[in-house]
Amino acid sequence: MNHLLEIIVRISRAAIGLAFCVLIGAVLIQVLGRSVFSNSPVWTEELTRFALLFLAAFGAGLSFRSGDLVNVDIVSESAPGRWPWRMRLIGAVVTAAMCALLIGPAWKYTSIGALQTSPALGWRMDYIHVSVLVLILSLMIFSAARAVLMMLGQSDGLPENRLDEPPL
């Protein structure tokens, strides 16, 4: 399971890097167009939004894994005994369950996009709406993995923000 998680982490990081490169490129074209050429292509606005969507989609699960999502650990970690571990487990299970419940609606939202195209780029919107599905699946995978690893005794449920890991 750890090997599969590492593969998903690497794919997510590569996708974040690609989305960030697209974002940088679109903004650079936008800035140069406005300041140097006095004419910025209209599609750069759309491409920037799409890149941000995918940046968030692939980053959500990794943020859960590293502990960078908003958390109320000041409450849970101050509890006595095994309660912090229990609260981390409950949080991971509830997060995974909620994501599982949202897969159907996210799939419907994505499929509706096949009937629409983006105004400036002319892309089918299901290719863009799939970012919502990716976000939910990413968050579900990493929260379920945390819960399973905790139940197997391979993790204490604390975020895996290790100092020896390269930054996202």
Rank of each mutant, 00 (worst) to 15 (best):
V31S: 10
I112S: 12
I136L: 15
A79E: 03
I11K: 00
A56D: 00
L47H: 09
I7M: 04
R49E: 05
L18V: 15
V94M: 12
M140L: 15
S138R: 08
R86E: 15
K108C: 04
W123S: 08
E45N: 05
M150G: 11
N71S: 13
A145N: 08
W83C: 07
W107F: 11
F58L: 06
A92P: 07
V70T: 09
M98R: 01
A51M: 13
A114R: 06
S66I: 13
G113Y: 02
R13T: 05
L32G: 13
R10I: 02
L149F: 04
R124C: 09
A57G: 09
L158W: 11
I90S: 14
F20I: 09
I90H: 12
E6T: 02
F37H: 04
F54T: 13
L121V: 08
N39K: 08
A120C: 00
L53M: 12
M140E: 15
T48C: 11
V130G: 00
V93I: 15
F50A: 11
P80T: 02
L168H: 11
L158S: 15
N39I: 11
F50K: 07
W83H: 08
V27C: 07
F50I: 15
M1W: 05
I141M: 13
L5W: 00
L32Y: 09
L133I: 14
S138T: 12
L69P: 06
A114L: 09
L5H: 00
R82G: 12
V130D: 01
A106K: 01
W83M: 11
V22K: 06
A147G: 03
R124I: 10
L133P: 07
S111D: 13
W43G: 06
I90M: 14
L101T: 03
I16C: 08
I103C: 07
M1L: 13
I74Y: 04
V134W: 02
C99F: 03
Q154K: 14
D126E: 09
L69F: 00
F64P: 07
V132S: 03
I128V: 15
L115G: 06
M98K: 01
C21M: 15
C21P: 04
I112D: 14
L121C: 05
D126A: 01
V130C: 06
L23V: 09
L133S: 14
S76Y: 00
A57R: 12
D126V: 05
G17V: 09
A100Y: 08
A79M: 13
L137R: 06
S66T: 15
L4V: 08
F54R: 01
I16D: 01
